[in-house]
Amino acid sequence: MRALAAAAIGLTAALALVLTVSAIGGPSGETSPEPLLTTVPEHP
């Protein structure tokens, strides 16, 4: 029974954290228009 109570408390805390972050909103910023390079460019 203690394990069930601990799981319920943990789930409630995780849900509260998710709701808090979603209410506050993500960090504001802009994405870069430049594409990310996945390979090292070759130098001639």
Rank of each mutant, 00 (worst) to 15 (best):
S28C: 08
G10E: 06
L4C: 04
A6V: 08
P35C: 13
I24F: 08
G29N: 09
A3L: 09
G10M: 06
A13V: 09
R2D: 04
L37H: 14
S28L: 14
P27Q: 08
S28Q: 11
G25P: 08
T31Q: 13
T31W: 12
R2M: 03
T38M: 15
E30G: 14
A5H: 03
G29M: 10
G29V: 10
A23G: 12
A23P: 01
L4G: 00
T31Y: 11
T31S: 12
P33Q: 13
A3Y: 02
A5G: 02
G26R: 09
P35K: 12
T39G: 11
P35N: 12
V21I: 09
A16P: 01
A5R: 01
A7W: 02
L4E: 08
L19M: 10
V21F: 09
A5P: 00
A7M: 06
M1L: 05
A8V: 03
P27M: 10
E34L: 15
L4T: 03
V18E: 02
S22E: 10
G10H: 01
G26C: 08
S32V: 14
E30N: 13
L11P: 00
P33W: 13
V18Q: 01
G26K: 03
S32G: 11
T39S: 15
S22T: 10
A14K: 00
A8E: 05
G29S: 11
L37Y: 12
G10N: 08
M1W: 02
A13L: 11
T39R: 15
V21E: 07
M1G: 05
I24S: 06
A16K: 00
P35L: 15
G26I: 08
A6Q: 06
A6K: 00
L37M: 15
G26Y: 08
L4R: 03
R2T: 04
E34T: 14
G26W: 08
L4N: 01
E30D: 12
A7S: 07
T20L: 12
A6Y: 02
I9W: 01
I24M: 09
R2Y: 02
T39W: 13
G25R: 07
V21C: 06
A6T: 01
I24D: 02
I9T: 05
L36C: 15
A5D: 04
A23D: 04
A8Q: 03
T31E: 12
P35V: 12
L17D: 06
L15W: 06
V21S: 05
G25W: 09
E34K: 13
A16D: 01
E34H: 11
E34S: 14
A7P: 00
T12K: 01
